[in-house]
């Protein structure tokens, strides 16, 4: 799969989530491979990544769950509740599964600022549930910026004493899929790659190169304005927003090429600067988001 000697932008374009997914479905069918299970845990965050996943199209959620993986647990979608829901989680741990964690891991007061379940009278913190699952997972994905880098959940002064899932599981190989939220293609595309080809090529921060090899600035639709030194004065203007505080030059993500929500738009296309939401020092190192 290493075509890195070619133009990385062309790679990003050709390796869309859908082509990967078609490859993985062919692979599943031709090789009679059983579908992998998926456990999706929402930790200390806003649950925006599962909502973003629901926004996916080609593949959509239904396709993902029908053709690619068996979703064994997710707090937002599970039909169960209470102890029965936790038992579903426990049963899934005895299978071969991909673990997705969205949100950061809150460590304050023994993890009691983020509680996953109460089982047989005992409080199971989210930190504990993530550890239980990580110890048995075949692959681990930290989805979203909170899970990848701490993100907004660990913003100064970090009242919940949160750290990233990546740092919390520092004894494991964790793939980072940052973004606030993560684009659904980044998640399903990575899962598709894991199914058919195993580990994707990762950069030095464990991000899949197929989605994070370029900065937003590299592929920006307003790059020619930057090159000519024509800058926007305020939001709503059509020119380069570098001087308004755009973080595109330091943010690795393929937003300008891929675009969001059925590929219709992205923040710069909406006349607002990139705020660097997929980068490791978001939000504290990316502020102010807007300056004049």
């Amino acid at each position: 799969m290493n075509k890195f000697e070619n133009c990385p932008m062309i790679d990003s374009k050709s390796q869309t989530a859908m082509t990967l997914i078609n490859q993985s479905i062919d692979y599943i069918k031709q090789n009679n491979v059983p579908k992998l299970n998926l456990i999706w845990l929402e930790a200390t965050g806003c649950s925006g990544n599962i909502i973003s996943l629901l926004n996916g199209e080609n593949p959509g959620l239904y396709f993902l769950l029908k053709e690619m993986v068996n979703l064994k647990y997710d707090n937002s979608l599970s039909p169960y509740q209470g102890e029965r829901a936790f038992e579903e989680f426990l049963e899934a741990l005895n299978t071969e599964f991909i673990l997705v964690v969205e949100g950061a891991i809150s460590l304050k007061d023994g993890g009691l600022y983020s509680v996953f379940a109460r089982y047989k009278g005992k409080i199971i913190t989210t930190a504990k549930a993530v550890r239980m699952a990580a110890d048995k997972a075949k692959y681990i994905l930290a989805v979203g910026t909170c899970s990848s880098f701490g993100g907004i959940s660990s913003a100064s002064p970090n009242p919940s004493e949160s750290i990233s899932t990546f740092d919390y599981l520092n004894d494991k190989t964790v793939i980072r899929i940052p973004g606030c939220p993560a684009h659904p293609d980044w998640v399903t595309g990575t899962i598709a790659h894991l199914i058919s080809f195993g580990m994707p090529l990762l950069d030095e921060k464990n991000r899949p190169l197929m989605f994070y090899s370029l900065t937003v600035h590299d592929g920006c639709t307003r790059r020619s304005f930057f090159n000519k030194g024509i800058f926007a004065q305020k939001l709503g203007d059509a020119e380069c927003m570098f001087k308004l505080g755009c973080r595109g030059p330091v943010t690795k993500a393929d937003c300008p090429i891929r675009k969001w929500n059925q590929y219709v738009n992205y923040p710069i296309g909406d006349n607002t600067p990139c705020i660097g939401c997929a980068q490791d020092n978001f939000p504290d190192g990316m502020e102010p988001f807007v300056r004049y």
Binding site: G48, C180, P181, W260, N261, N265, P267, D270
Partner: peptide
């Protein structure tokens, strides 16, 4: 997203 750039967490 058409009016606000993306969702969740629009910019518009």
């Amino acid at each position: 997203a058409v009016l606000g750039g993306k969702a969740p967490h629009n910019h518009g």
